[in-house]
């Protein structure tokens, strides 16, 4: 009986410990890596937007295949699971080298809705990019606006 009780307590203790670990023991190294990873994600958006934007500004010739590849990549990026690198405790009040505002994690945050807006705009761009240059140009506005959707209230303006 006593053995069972001790075993039970040990299991309970381990479980509580594991939950506490998950909640409170995200190491500084993990947080720093998370910030780097999400900034790399943003860089990939920018790289592919550069292809589409260059065509929209007529700096590079419109090419349906290249435009589609860029749009597909943006749409894929927008739908990747990202919770692994938007960790709690990685806002600009808690860490250096990030402009992510605590509002992202606050109660009632609509960051998920805004992320959904990006998926919608990116999906529309997939169709537009494959159609013609005028369609691509018209889809740049909503796509850029969906970037601003998050950067309006969730990113600290530059110092």
């Amino acid at each position: 009986m006593r053995k069972i009780l001790i075993a039970g307590l040990a299991i309970t203790g381990t479980a509580i410990g594991a939950i506490a670990y998950a909640d409170n023991h995200i190491s500084d190294a993990q947080k720093a890596a998370a910030v780097k990873a999400r900034q790399a994600h943003m860089t990939l958006y920018a790289f592919n937007l550069g292809t589409l934007g260059g065509m929209a500004k007529e700096e590079i010739p419109y090419d349906a295949a290249a435009a589609t590849a860029a749009a597909d990549t943006i749409a894929t990026l927008a739908q990747l699971p990202q919770s692994g690198y938007w960790l709690p405790g990685t806002d600009n009040g808690s860490m250096e080298n990030t402009r992510a505002l605590p509002a992202i994690w606050a109660d009632g945050s609509d960051v998920g809705t805004k992320a959904g807006d990006l998926v919608t705009a990116a999906t529309a761009m997939q169709t537009a990019a494959a159609t013609d240059l005028d369609s691509l140009k018209a889809a740049m506005g909503p796509l850029g606006a969906s970037c601003g959707g998050c950067h309006k209230g969730f990113r600290q303006p530059d110092e």
Partner: peptide
């Protein structure tokens, strides 16, 4: 290909 942020949005 960064985006506007804050009030500029």
């Amino acid at each position: 290909y960064d985006s506007a942020g804050g009030e500029m949005v």
